[in-house]
Design a protein around this nucleic acid. Structure first.
Length: 592
RNA sequence: GCGCCCGUAGCUCAGUCGGAUAGAGCACCAGAUUCCUAAUCUGGGGGUCGCAGGUUCAAAUCCUGCCGGGCGCGCCA
């Protein structure tokens, strides 16, 4: 439980006590009572709005109620002072000893510090990346990959049972086109065994979309495995084989990219398998039984009527009954299921596997698809379940301020693997998490690797490295004994008396609350901003030691004080490591 | 035309289920520093939170309308 929740409990107890004494009514609704950090630290360590939100129920003026509350809150353990401020806030200042005890707690917990149980073991399905298996991942994909993975880690840390899932879109027309291209490369790979005229006639009959070199080795491997057996075969014959082969190969490429990013999935679900196992029919029967499917004619989109539009009866899902703007088609004119229909089946499959809470991470170009999918999930879970969709905006690459051309049409997209190779997994992951998912992100190769304060990766990593370097020096000065975290938890922490030292502990003690807030909001980027703030505070304290030798972390003639300060430094490293672990970023021992 | 997202300092962006005098980095200005506890530090100026209404004890935050930008818009995935 975070420290603010703990004090909220104390404040509630105070209110109950007042009710016992008849000073306020019993049975007040306390749901809106909050204990939070004040925006301005000058207001104290914690603040509560209790008097303001209860004034009506208590039939008292906010300030009068605040005074009564403050008087009793003052008597609580660990509270140094409680005062009324503004329109009726009660501000609490806590004893330094309380904060020092939090530091000991951090050291004993280690990287588990900030773990929470708010999830209560609830299963959550996080579906992300889900890039079509038609080629390697490009940088845009890596943003969704990192956000999904970090969000999953954040939820795990707060007590949810998380499944990381990848939906393999291996059933649409795109993979057929991919198979065509692979077949072309296969013919080429057979060399002398195939005449040029065969290849050319194949090329003439096909407008190949996927001409990238990455299919060359795929064609070669297929030729090696199957020999010339498909050369004379009709497309109907080779297509299923070639398609399965190339999809497997592409998923191999994608897994390799994901590996490079340090991302592992628990489940890969195949769209083709969903269809083959009859799950679409199952899902539609489910909806049909609830009268949510009918045949009807949709109006054309207002103000933008497609040229070939004509009224046509379609099989429709009543999405508009669940918040969507219009009902949505489930069947194409050739009778095949729409992508939406199979996606409904896929999400019913998730529900049947036990998920009521689902999160999907998509590219921003899928924005128009969100409402209908949420409508479907509501229908499939009888209103009990929820689908949150995180839309990721574009990543723009820069080379020292100059935009890197990466139009997909020109085939000049930048591969995730290339970016990772150039700046490293840790930099890619951290930078991708320094913006909200719904804000565009600029990624400048020069800036993300420069060693200055305005590079957040460097600044946070540097703080961790500085702590490690302190410990190397400390071990030289005082010997390595007694410098492990458990031992430091028993150091003379009451020697930490400087306001900035205690202030740093307060920042560290805010970690569990931040984690919970970020997890509940599904916003991993908050962790990045928090880590930057902690790093900044630590660096500032360190710099004070340059002006005033008494404030240096290691004071040779005072081992007791040095040990206390090493404990503080270790607390910083612990919290940073705990945060970086959520990000999948390795904390560094030194900067080289 | 409709829907979704966004609009906060010169720039890039944070802003906690509504909370007090709206924050950070860069840039700018002024001081300090040449140190190895490394790849500067300290302080300062700078805001009608796109605009206009509304709800509330309290609005950058919630609601409505407008303005501006991005994405999408019956059978694609």
């Amino acid at each position: 439980m975070n420290v603010f929740e703990r004090f909220r409990g104390h404040v509630v107890a105070v209110i109950d006590g007042l009710a016992e004494d008849g000073a306020v009514p019993r049975e007040m609704d306390l749901a809106r009572v909050a204990v939070e950090p004040p925006r301005d630290p000058n207001h104290g360590d914690m603040t509560t709005n209790a008097a303001m939100v209860l004034a009506g129920q208590a039939a008292m003026k906010p300030k009068a109620l605040a005074r009564v509350l403050a008087e009793r809150i003052c008597q609580l353990d660990d509270v140094a002072d409680a005062s009324v401020a503004g329109p009726g806030f009660v501000n609490l200042r806590l004893e330094d000893s309380f904060w020092r005890a939090r530091l000991a707690e951090i050291l004993r917990s280690g990287p588990a510090y900030g773990d929470s149980f708010i999830g209560g073991g609830e299963p959550v399905n996080v579906e992300f990346v889900s890039a079509n298996p038609t080629g390697p991942l490009h940088v845009g994909h890596s943003r969704g990959a990192v956000i999904g993975d970090a969000l999953a880690a954040l939820l795990e840390k707060t007590g949810y049972k998380v499944t990381r899932e990848y939906y393999v879109n291996d059933a649409g027309a795109q993979v057929d086109k991919l198979a065509d291209a692979a077949y072309w490369r296969y013919l080429e790979a057979l060399g002398d065994k195939v005449s040029q005229t065969v290849i050319e006639s194949f090329l003439q009959g096909n407008d190949l979309e996927y001409r990238g070199d990455y299919l060359v080795p795929v064609g070669a491997r297929l030729a090696e495995r199957d020999g010339p057996k498909w050369v004379e075969a009709a497309r109907d014959e080779w297509l299923p084989e070639v398609r399965a082969f190339v999809v497997e190969e592409m998923m191999g490429l994608i897994r390799r990219d994901l590996d490079a990013l340090g991302i592992r999935f628990d489940v890969f679900t195949s769209e083709r398998a969903i269809v083959a196992e009859g799950k679409v029919d199952e899902a539609l029967r489910f909806l049909e039984a609830r009268d949510l499917i009918y045949t009807g004619v949709l109006d054309p989109p207002k103000g933008k009527k497609p040229d070939d539009w004509e009224p046509r009866p379609q099989t429709l899902f009543r999405a508009s009954a669940f918040g969507d703007d219009v009902d949505r088609p489930l069947r194409k004119s050739d009778g095949a299921w729409t992508y939406f229909a199979t996606d409904i089946a896929y999400h019913l499959d998730k529900v049947l596997r036990g998920y009521q809470t689902m999160i999907n991470v998509w590219g921003a170009d899928h924005g128009g698809y969100v409402k209908r999918m949420q409508a479907a999930v509501k229908a499939l879970t009888e209103g009990q379940g929820a689908l949150d969709v995180k839309l990721c905006q574009m990543v723009s690459l820069y080379e020292n301020g100059e935009p890197v051309a990466m139009s997909k049409r020109a085939g000049a997209f930048v591969a995730t693997a290339d970016v990772v190779e150039r700046v490293g997994k840790d930099v890619v992951r951290f930078i991708m998490l320094t913006r909200r998912n719904d804000a565009p992100l600029d990624f400048d190769f020069a800036k993300v690797t420069e060693r200055t304060r305005d590079n957040p990766v460097f600044y946070v990593q540097y703080a961790h490295a500085r702590v490690r370097s302190l410990f190397r020096l400390g071990a030289e000065m005082f010997g390595a004994g007694g410098l492990d975290a458990d031992a430091l938890a028993t150091a003379a922490l009451n020697r930490l008396t400087d306001a900035d030292e205690v202030g740093l502990i307060k920042a560290l003690a805010g970690w569990p609350r931040l984690v919970e807030g970020a997890a509940e909001a599904h916003e991993p980027h908050r962790v990045a901003y928090y880590l930057q703030a902690v790093a900044a505070q630590f660096h500032a304290l360190w710099n004070k030691g340059k002006d005033d030798a008494n404030l240096r972390f290691l004071v040779e003639e005072d081992p007791e004080l040095s040990r206390a300060r090493l404990a503080l430094a270790q607390g910083v490293a612990t919290v940073i490591a705990s945060g970086l672990r959520i990000f999948g970023v390795t904390p560094v021992e030194e900067m080289r």
